[in-house]
Amino acid sequence: MLILALETATERVSAALVSDAEVRAAWHAETAGDLCRRFAPHIAELLERGDADFGEIDLIAVGLGPGSFTSLRIGLATAKAIAHSRDVPLVGISSLAAMAWQVRRRFSGLLCPVLDARRGDLYAAGYQVADGAMHQLQSEVAAKPQALAAALRQHGYPITFFGEMAPDQARALEDLCPKDWKVVRDTVRPDAPCIAELGRLRFESDGGDDLASLRPIYVRMSYAEERFDIDLGLR
């Protein structure tokens, strides 16, 4: 099965061509507001390097965030266009889940990937790995460290926080941690090969997502909806 995976939740964007769990070609880059310009040519080049044609792709897996709204939409619009025009199934994967999958053998207990959500918040979720399968115990949220720790505490497992956070956010989490929790300071960011792997598992279990209605995991309403207290149901 040939999978094209795209991941654009953070400034480190990536793409991978994965064939039967083997990465045939991968690309990643730091972007600074030029993702729309650079993304498509790199994907075309990735396929060339992987010696594959767009017509040979069996599945497209795309990271849904949470993260930068605009970057997520660039990734998702690209994924939808390739999937639609090549009549290939599309599956959207939480970028936080991909981060947890990446470290599932390194850490134990409740895995809590976090990304900086600005405004003092962290995007976070909670996962547990048992018998090689990963289960989501905490859905994606944008929360202050204190509220996040309180929400996760109720699951009753020791927690490992990891991901990409500002130093003061890491300190705030450390101050909240009981002895058996930990905060990993090394940066972990979502990566396309993990999106591909989780995409394959999801596709095998439920056949993937509806292409048209698939949307990023925004978590937050738009600022205007918050201000006017109108929920348009676009989350």
Binding site: A40, A44, F54, G75, A79, A81, S85, R86
Partner: peptide
């Protein structure tokens, strides 16, 4: 609107690369 433009442009580019 830049956020609106990028959706159309990213989709157009996706179509362009996928269909040559």
């Amino acid at each position: 609107l830049i956020g609106s433009l990028v959706v159309g442009v990213a989709a157009a580019k996706g179509l362009a690369i996928a269909r040559g």
